[in-house]
Design a protein around this nucleic acid. Structure first.
Length: 139
DNA sequence: GCCAACGTTGGC
DNA sequence: GCCAACGTTGGC
């Protein structure tokens, strides 16, 4: 069981849109970066992830679950690009901002803090627990 | 809106 | 196989 973080600009694909898809979930498509793709290939069913709004909001707003293993990205014919499907699990009681993560000494090693360009990233169990607490939600 | 950081592309 | 040029991302 591993933890991840998915980034999206809210005006491209938002948490609300993700929630609207219900338990069926939705492809996390459009990723054209090898590192991000490799992370998705490693995901297992039931793995959990944070849903992060980049650019404008810069905050983690909820928890998602991997509900389909990596498969061809339907938005391209190019066989290099896979993606998983994810479904919304629950929202945070209060969003956790990037600034909060940067401020917390236990979170300074987060990929989110150190490699802002990577759109699908791993999260450690410790980071998961700390952020769930900050976000006022069950881990 | 700007620009630094990063990843990718393509000429050599 | 190197690296300059280019495009994109995302924090500020």
């Amino acid at each position: 069981m591993a933890y991840w973080l998915f980034k999206s600009e809210a005006d491209v694909w938002s948490w609300d849109q993700q929630v609207a898809k219900g338990d069926i979930g939705e492809e996390w498509n459009g990723v054209r970066n090898y590192q991000a793709r490799n992370n998705m290939r490693q995901m297992q069913l039931g793995d959990l992830g944070f849903f992060y709004h980049s650019r404008a909001e810069k905050e983690i707003v909820g928890i998602v679950e991997v509900c389909a293993l990596a498969h061809q990205d339907s938005t391209t014919e190019d066989a290099r690009w896979d993606c998983v499907d994810i479904k919304a699990v629950r929202p945070f009681g209060s969003p956790v901002t990037l600034a909060m993560c940067k401020q917390n000494p236990r979170l300074i090693d987060m990929v989110l803090v150190n490699n802002s360009r990577l759109s699908v990233q791993p999260v450690t169990a410790d980071e998961w627990a700390i952020i769930c607490e900050l976000g006022a939600t069950q881990p």
